[in-house]
Write a protein that binds this DNA or RNA. Structure first.
Length: 534
DNA sequence: GCGTTGAACG
């Protein structure tokens, strides 16, 4: 190392100095070393050498280091027009690949274009990736314009990233499809991007359909395609298709990457075969945080959906998993485990995990809501009140549940116990009528989920005032018989509303589509597409 | 004068 530094600084031979600098940077792995090497670069007089600068930017592995490298490269006295596209590409790539700094990638792209450095075909995949992360459709469209202007719209890599970019922008899926349809040649990446894009926007049926087209087109899917197809299966609850995908993977000898194993675990868990998911999980090597979350999430869901099978042992198992986890458990895993505890009555365990979670995320309001709900279920009303008081003190509020419905191009929003609507009286009469008809059909209100200290009759009343039921009553009143009803809920749909909606779909012969915070529920003829796992 | 790429799972 010392020898390299010496050569870099004192050699008269420029080529040798350059090689030493590159070797130094090759060996550099920390931000502190990067600043030392920066000093060497300055001493050796190579601070304008494009090769060294590019290596300097490429060496920056974490965010801090990238910031450091880019601030050095593009500091006030830097002559931007001396730099080449390669250097900009390296910086843009570094930012496009880090999760929270996509806008910086675009900043440097702008610096590049304004400094008259021409982008090349390697530039746009990075820029488009950054756009995808930002998810702004208009931004994406303008970059698309530049791609066309510079004539890179014939490059298959650029187009693939463009498809992906449009898929990541709200309302961009049609644009993605247009780019996809106009591509002269499609490779497995193009198909994967489009198939994955449909899954992303909730179009799992289209996704599976496109996968079939891909096979007919004779393009061989790879492990990334299969991950997307499996996500579609998961979303659709299509266990049979999922099993077919698994056997296809075996038959075709597709590489089982960690991500693919995770997708299989997730699919089996959410499509109803939790034992298979557990088996895959146990057999896999190199588990990541996603593997753990998938399997724990799967166990939690089954607790909810299949209380009869008495899985309460799995919660303890999940808790042991977390303790044994080689990776620091993240809040998502913790919250999932807490919901599982809640569903299984493992309240003591839930309480201790939630407290731990609050210590690590004191300002996350949902953690307090979790703890407060656990206390309610334990009948510790005094402790529950204390939590609420603590939240008020910190200026936090529980987000109120609300349901939206679109009718004749107008959007109506209902909150629990809403009386603001002009048809309020009719709506509550309708809710009463719905209740009577549903009970005749066998509906039993799930009062155990009402976390208030009141008697059973009042609990039933509280359930009747839930925003979903009000919105559905409103839709039943104002749309002709047989029209499908579409509603959007900001939080997760509650157990009772889920069960009630199944009955309503049967009794009133309506197809009801509910989008909640997590997923879509398609209710038809007394059944829900989620098969009660959600 | 010398180097870079695309798509994925909770």
């Amino acid at each position: 190392m010392q020898r390299l530094v010496k050569t870099a600084i004192f050699t008269a031979n420029r080529r040798e100095a350059e090689q030493s600098c590159l070797a130094l940077l090759q060996a550099c792995d920390a931000v502190s070393k990067l600043s030392q090497i920066h000093a060497h670069v300055l001493k050796s007089g190579l601070q304008n050498n494009p090769l060294v600068l590019t290596k300097f930017a490429a060496t920056a592995s974490d965010l801090k280091a990238i910031d450091y490298a880019s601030s050095f490269l593009f500091s006030g006295d830097a002559d931007t027009h001396l730099y080449d596209s390669f250097l900009f590409n390296t910086v843009i790539r570094a930012y496009a690949q880090t999760s929270h700094e996509k806008h910086k990638a675009l900043c440097f792209y702008n610096v590049m274009v304004q400094g008259s450095v021409l982008p090349n075909k390697f530039t746009y995949p990075f820029v488009l990736k950054a756009c995808a992360g930002i998810g702004d459709l208009n931004l994406g469209k303008s970059v698309h314009g530049s791609v066309v202007k510079f004539g890179f719209d014939a490059d298959v890599h650029v187009c693939n990233t463009m498809v992906h970019m449009y898929c990541c922008c709200g309302g961009g899926i049609e644009f993605a499809r247009k780019v996809f349809d106009e591509m002269p040649k499609l490779d497995s990446v193009s198909w994967s991007a489009m198939i994955g894009g449909y899954v992303r926007v909730g179009g799992s049926t289209d996704s599976v359909e496109l996968f079939r087209e891909m096979q007919m087109a004779g393009v061989k899917p790879d492990e990334i395609t299969m991950v997307s197809v499996l996500s579609a299966c998961t979303d659709l609850g299509a266990l049979e298709l999922g099993k077919w995908v698994e056997s296809y993977i075996e038959k075709e000898g597709i590489h089982k990457s960690v991500e693919l194993c995770n997708a299989l675990i997730d699919m089996f868990a959410k499509c109803g075969n939790v034992d298979k998911a557990l088996k895959l999980f146990r057999n896999m090597s190199g588990r990541t945080i996603v593997s753990w979350t998938s399997v724990i999430d799967g166990l939690a869901m089954h607790g909810r959906g299949m209380e009869a099978i008495a899985l309460a042992g799995h919660v303890k198992e999940a808790s042991e998993f977390i303790q044994k986890m080689p990776i620091e458990p993240n809040p998502i895993v913790m919250r999932t485990l807490i919901s599982a505890c809640h569903a299984h009555g493992e309240l003591k365990l839930g309480e201790s995990i939630t407290k731990q979670l609050i210590r690590s995320e004191p300002m996350q309001e949902s953690n307090y809501v979790l703890l407060s709900n656990i206390y309610a279920k334990m009948n510790h009303w005094d402790k529950k009140t204390k939590i609420r008081e603590a939240m008020d003190k910190k200026g936090m509020k529980k987000i109120p549940g609300s349901t939206m419905i679109e009718l004749d191009h107008e959007i109506y929003e209902f909150v629990a116990g809403d009386k603001s609507h002009r048809q309020s009286k009719e709506i509550y009469e309708m809710v009463e009528e719905m209740g009577r008809k549903m009970k005749k059909a066998g509906y039993v209100p799930t009062t155990s989920e009402v976390l208030l200290d009141i008697n059973e009759e009042d609990k039933e009343d509280a359930l009747n005032r839930h925003s979903e039921k009000l919105a559905i009553a409103f839709a039943l009143l104002n749309t002709p018989p047989g029209t499908p009803i579409r509603i959007v809920k900001n939080l997760r749909v509650c157990n009772d509303c889920h069960s009630a909606t199944k009955f309503i779909s049967k009794v009133y012969n309506r197809e009801i589509v509910v989008r909640d915070r997590n997923r879509f529920h398609h209710f038809k003829d007394g059944m829900c597409s989620c098969r009660d796992f959600w």
